[in-house]
Lab assay of single mutants.
Amino acid sequence: MEVRTIKVFTTVDNINLHTQVVDMSMTYGQQFGPTYLDGADVTKIKPHNSHEGKTFYVLPNDDTLRVEAFEYYHTTDPSFLGRYMSALNHTKKWKYPQVNGLTSIKWADNNCYLATALLTLQQIELKFNPPALQDAYYRARAGEAANFCALILAYCNKTVGELGDVRETMSYLFQHANLDSCKRVLNVVCKTCGQQQTTLKGVEAVMYMGTLSYEQFKKGVQIPCTCGKQATKYLVQQESPFVMMSAPPAQYELKHGTFTCASEYTGNYQCGHYKHITSKETLYCIDGALLTKSSEYKGPITDVFYKENSYTTTIK
C-alpha cells in the first residue's frame, strides 16, 4: 500500500517557510505537534488534498525554529505562539472599519479597549522592536488589523473576551517599542525636605499616572512627601515624541487643539466601556464603527496623549 502524501510549508514567522512532505494517514499533531492554519487549530486533523502548498504555523520545537521565533517575536515564552494563534482565530472574524481616516474595530468580545489602543497607536510616533509587531502594525494602518490585535493580546497575556485596560495595554506595548531616546527629568520640591531631581528613561519617561493635564504637570502637581507634608512635583525636561497622561476616570474637559487623542471610560472596574476622542479640525468621538463630532467635550476621561518633541522648564 502506497503512502499518500502532500507537500506543505511549516513556519513560526510566515517569513521562513520549511518544506514538509506530510503523510495523509496521520494527523498534523502526530507529525508536527500543535499546528495552526489561519489561526485555526488543526492539530487533530489529517492532511487533505486542499492543504497542498498551504502554510501551517507550528510551535518552535527545534533550534532553527526557536531562533526564527525569537528573532521575529522577541520572546522565548513557549506558550506565546499558541496564544497568538488562538487569538487570531477570533480577531480574523472582527470587522476593521476605516473611521475618520483611522483603522478602528467594530465592537465584539469586549474589544473596546483594543480599538482605543489601536486608534491611539496610529496617532503617536512609535516604532516597535519585534519585527512581528512592526509588520502587523503597518498592515493594521492599511486596514488589516487582525494579526496586530492578536499579537497585542498575546504580548499582554490576554484572551479574547476578557476586559482590558488601555493604560495597561499601552504599557505592555511600550515595553516592546523603541523608547531608548526618551528621557524625563522631574523635580520634587518640599518646604521641609528641599528639592530632589529624578531622571527617568524609556517607558517611565512617557507615562504618568495622577493627572490628565500635561500643562498642569509642567506647572506642578501636589504629591505627598515622605515627611508627610505636601510637596510639588513638576516637569523639568521632556525628550520624547509623545507623552501619555493618565488618571482614574473623572469628568474632564478636553479643549480642541490642546491634545492629540484621549480615552474615555464609562462604567466601573468590573464592567465598563471605552471610547476614543481625537482632536482634528474639530473633536471626534470614535466608538467602534461609530463616529460623532463636537466642538467641545466633557466626560469621564482616563488617558490623554500629547505630541511632544523637546521641553525644558522655565521655572527657576
Rank of each mutant, 00 (worst) to 15 (best):
V3T: 12
T5F: 12
F9I: 06
F9V: 12
T11K: 05
V12I: 10
I15T: 13
N16D: 14
L17K: 08
V21A: 13
V21K: 13
V22T: 09
D23C: 11
M26R: 13
G29L: 07
G29V: 07
Q30R: 12
F32L: 13
G33C: 01
D38N: 10
D38L: 09
D41P: 11
D41R: 06
D41Y: 07
T43Y: 11
P47S: 05
P47D: 03
H51I: 00
H51A: 07
E52H: 12
K54G: 11
T55Q: 08
F56H: 05
Y57M: 11
V58Q: 10
P60E: 05
P60V: 09
E68R: 07
A69P: 03
Y73S: 04
H74Q: 07
H74M: 07
T75E: 08
D77K: 07
D77H: 03
L81S: 02
R83L: 08
Y84W: 01
M85E: 07
S86I: 10
T91W: 01
K93E: 11
Y96M: 01
V99C: 09
I105P: 04
K106M: 15
K106P: 03
W107I: 04
A108L: 07
A108D: 09
N110S: 04
C112T: 05
Y113A: 05
T116L: 09
L119H: 00
Q122Y: 04
Q123S: 08
L126K: 07
L133T: 03
Q134R: 11
A136N: 09
Y138E: 14
A140I: 13
A142Y: 07
A142N: 14
G143R: 02
E144Y: 10
A145T: 02
C149I: 09
L151N: 05
L153G: 08
Y155S: 01
C156Q: 11
K158M: 01
K158C: 00
T159Q: 12
G161E: 12
G164T: 00
V166T: 08
R167T: 05
E168L: 15
M170T: 03
L173I: 12
F174H: 00
Q175A: 12
H176D: 05
H176G: 03
D180Y: 10
S181Q: 15
C182M: 03
C182E: 02
K183P: 03
C190Y: 01
C190T: 00
K191L: 11
G194Y: 01
Q195I: 12
E204C: 07
E204H: 11
A205R: 01
M207V: 07
M209D: 11
G210C: 00
T211Y: 01
E215D: 14
Q216K: 10
F217C: 05
K218F: 02
V221N: 01
V221Q: 04
V221G: 00
Q222G: 06
Q222R: 12
P224Q: 13
P224S: 12
G228P: 01
G228K: 06
K229M: 12
L235R: 05
V236Y: 07
F242K: 00
S246V: 01
A247Q: 05
A250F: 01
Y252Q: 09
L254S: 00
L254D: 04
K255G: 07
H256K: 11
T258Y: 06
F259C: 05
C261F: 00
A262N: 07
S263Q: 02
Y265R: 10
T266E: 12
G267T: 15
Q270C: 15
G272Y: 06
H273V: 05
H273S: 00
H273M: 02
Y274M: 02
K275P: 03
I277D: 06
S279P: 05
S279N: 08
S279Q: 09
L283P: 00
I286N: 00
D287I: 06
L290T: 12
L291R: 09
T292Y: 09
K293V: 09
S295L: 14
S295V: 12
Y297L: 07
I301N: 01
T302K: 01
T302G: 00
V304W: 01
V304C: 02
Y311T: 11
Y311W: 08
T312N: 08
T314L: 15
I315A: 15
K316G: 15
